[in-house]
Nucleic acid binder design. Structure first.
Length: 468
RNA sequence: GUCCCCAUCGUCUAGCGGUCCAGGACUCCGCCCUCUCACGGCGGCAACAGGGGUUCGAAACCCCUUGGGGACGCCA
């Protein structure tokens, strides 16, 4: 049997952490078993579904690299099929028209709540065959009243629901449109889904869906309900916890592989291993080791992983992303050091591409001001001779490379009888405008002779002006 | 309120009856390295929710309590 999994988001919001993890696990499960991964957009709620959300989901999936083999399928394009199944259930006596008004239902619920009962439809229209004037009916599924539904969940084990806890859910609205529990069942059936991997919030829907599936005489898929992901504060993950759209992570300077690695470890483990390449995830992923308990989102660990990938990924690959961020700052990456070289010198001190881009701006563009504190300490009448001496040495430097530059800086320090830091730090401030940069030899090498000399002179002049 | 799920360091987790006075990772704190910031290296703080069982033996199995979470829509 070929495994077929699906990710079925509703486009009523953006792709968030929880959704992305569900998608990842479904994708991994399919990939792990040589199966098929399907994307289905559950847009039956016309009121709340938006094209923006659909785009955000598609864009997020692409950015993460979770490619789907089939789809995207849109439920709004399958209404004819749902109507057909609803009629089939009606004909088979598994569903009936309900003429209850919203007011009636509200009243019933209020009474049940008051009696501390579970709010549920009491099935009063099961036997009320005659239509009521002016009340367009909904269609309800006739849920069995006896017995129990036993779910053999792959992550949770056996979960039992008594049928008497369930009620006759609406499968078609009064305007004839199908509802969630019906469309899911029909689609999972028609699309041949073998494994339904989804959030735990759907566990309660599962017995209802199984009952409909059984009324249809269908073969049941396997279910795997993943625990929820909470925000760093332990509360429910919501739009208030930042990252409104998953694409925010791209904008914030994260690499997709870091997100994927973080996500896979949220609720799944393989011994003590923390770092997984995509190939390793696919090779090692198994539902046996999926956690039963909810987990909290930990931004610090994501940052650590992102830094790890910045450090260890192919600089050419990271450079591709860095260029995008430099572009966001109005910089043409072609007008300056090669981005891959920049990655090589910057990556150990940057946790995000945003930090890296910010720290790299001075290589491409003249800075307007010296950082006040740094200039006050390092650009002084005492350091001016140091800067002049280095400028002189560099003007005649034959080979503009790291080794020669290091030697030149060391020589100046020795000649003047000062420590290396007494040369490097003023030079750093002179060329970068700040007190932080890659090692001075690497900085000067990448900056180039022209910019280096110009900035050393500019700094000397700056000191002169301050003294005068 | 009713039903369902869950429960190991602050967080992510290892653990599938003895090798656990509980291991790894993030964070935090020391020390070393050092031209800045970092990287790196070494070390440290920190947990089996509580109570009953089962067993020669329980973090692991069972029950209860407590505490979290989810569901209870003509939303998905």
């Amino acid at each position: 049997m070929t495994i077929r999994t699906r990710f079925a988001p509703s486009p009523t919001g953006y792709l968030h952490i929880g959704g992305a993890r569900t998608a990842l696990f479904s994708w991994l499960y399919a990939r792990r078993h040589g199966g098929t991964f399907i994307l289905r957009i559950e847009d039956t709620d016309l009121e709340r579904s938006t094209a923006e959300s659909v785009n955000a989901i598609l864009e997020g999936m692409t950015w993460l690299g979770l490619e789907y083999d089939e789809g995207p399928f849109y439920q709004t394009e399958r209404f004819d099929r749902y109507k057909e199944v609803i009629q089939q259930l009606l004909d088979g006596g598994h569903a009936y028209h309900c003429y209850c008004t919203r007011e009636e239902l509200d009243e019933m619920r209020a009474g049940q709540m008051e009696r501390k009962e579970k709010p549920r439809y009491d099935g009063r229209c099961r036997h009320r065959a005659e239509p009521r004037a002016g009340v367009p009916p909904v269609v309800r599924f006739k849920n069995p009243d006896e017995g129990a539904v036993v779910i053999d969940d792959i992550v949770r084990g056996q979960v039992v629901f008594q049928n008497r806890e369930l009620d006759d859910l609406i499968i078609a609205r009064s305007d004839g449109s199908p509802t969630y529990n019906l469309t899911v069942v029909v689609d999972d059936l028609d699309m041949g889904i073998t494994h339904v991997i989804r959030g735990e919030d759907h566990l309660n829907n599962t017995p209802r869906q199984i009952n409909i599936l059984q009324a249809l005489g269908a073969h049941l898929p396997r279910y795997a309900h993943l625990s929820m992901i909470h925000g760093a504060d332990g509360a429910k993950l919501s739009k208030r916890h930042g990252a409104v759209s998953f694409m925010q992570y791209r904008d914030d300077g994260f690499l997709p592989e870091a997100l994927l690695n973080y996500l896979v470890r949220l609720g799944w483990s393989h011994g003590d291993q923390e770092v997984f390449s995509i190939d390793e995830m696919i090779e090692l992923f198994d539902i046996d080791h999926v956690s039963h308990s909810a987990s909290a989102f930990n931004p610090d660990k994501l940052l650590w992983l992102n830094h790890h990938y910045l450090m260890h990924a192919d600089p050419l690959h990271v450079a591709h992303h860095l260029r995008w961020h430099l572009g966001q700052r109005g910089i043409d990456p072609a007008q300056g050091p090669d981005a891959a070289d920049m990655v090589a010198v910057q990556r150990e001190r940057c946790k995000t591409l945003v930090e890296m881009a910010d720290a790299s701006v001075f290589f491409y563009r003249e800075f307007a001001h010296y950082e006040e504190k740094a200039a006050k300490k390092n650009l002084t009448t005492e350091t001016a001779p140091v800067l002049r001496a280095l400028a002189a040495a560099l003007e005649s430097l034959h080979d503009w490379n790291k080794e020669a530059l290091h030697q030149a800086v060391t020589n100046v320090a020795e000649t003047l009888g000062v420590k290396l830091g007494s040369v490097a730090q003023p030079v750093r401030v002179a060329v970068s405008g700040t007190s932080v940069s890659p090692p001075i030899d690497a900085t000067l090498e990448l900056l180039g002779r022209e910019k280096t000399l110009a900035r050393l002179r500019r700094a000397v002049q700056h000191i002169g002006e301050g003294a005068a």
